[in-house]
Design a protein around this nucleic acid. Sequence first.
DNA 1: GTTGAAAAACGCGGAGT
DNA 2: ACTCCGCGTTTTTCAAC
Lengths: 161, 161
Amino acid sequence: MLFIGANVKLDSLDIKILGILQRDAEQQVAHIAEQIGLSATPCWRRIQRLKEAGVITGTVALLDPRKVNVAVTVFVSVRTSTHTQEWLDRFTATVDAIPEVVEFYRMSGDVDYLLRVVVPDIAAYDAVYKRLISGTNLHDVSSSFAMQELKQTTALPLGYI
Amino acid sequence: MLFIGANVKLDSLDIKILGILQRDAEQQVAHIAEQIGLSATPCWRRIQRLKEAGVITGTVALLDPRKVNVAVTVFVSVRTSTHTQEWLDRFTATVDAIPEVVEFYRMSGDVDYLLRVVVPDIAAYDAVYKRLISGTNLHDVSSSFAMQELKQTTALPLGYI
DNA sequence: GTTGAAAAACGCGGAGT
DNA sequence: ACTCCGCGTTTTTCAAC
């Protein structure tokens, strides 16, 4: 049992609820309740608590990338020579304004930043690339294309709670 | 207007609906309807259609990685010397069984596969690493740690429809 | 596409185990 | 802390237009 921040303790029933909602948040509470061996009211209250505590940050619809014409994933490794906070602020602002960038990390090691970009095709990627490098001074940018998406999930592992 | 597969055409209202549901799928249809200037019934019908057509693949709860103790993201680049289908099948099976791996791509270029792994700390990553390399024969594995998550979204860009 | 109404599920309280 | 009960309210869902 892990205590997080201001007294949010998660027991095995909470973990089961999280596991279920992470896969499908459309089920009704009564159905979730019976899966974990509980009646609807306490199950409903637990879900409320998990939302208030910020464990559940939101519930969203997931779209098929192919159906919305962004089937191509590109990973962009960025190196910079200017390691100031204001440079990062500016780069972050640039990236935030580009909806094609769906993930953006500051990395350890030889690459400074890593971005995941989704686009319909190479031509569209080139446009994104130009937007990226026009915003700030980047020392080195290298793009790797994903040929196949073998696994992709929003469900986090729950074994470390 | 883009036609996808077997006659799924998405107009600007559909795109607005997708944009809304991608950010927050908990709103009631009446509320979505008024945002796009429609009454509840046709809006509800459009959402059904988008689900049946597979544009919306599901609705899930998103969790705070820190609150479930997987705040550390590691990118794992894998090179292999055996490029057979059965090797890939086996590697895929290995990866699928590891819940810490949340993304898994086959790449072009010098890296063959790229994985995103979420864990609580370096020690936990070492355990995942050992599971990864024990399953199959990997020629070269290199791990990069994310120091900071600057952007992370499940919302796909809707401008290419 | 609209309006309106039935059916279902939610939200929340209370008493008891 | 959960169960069972219940009831008003909201929301979904499906008529008919």
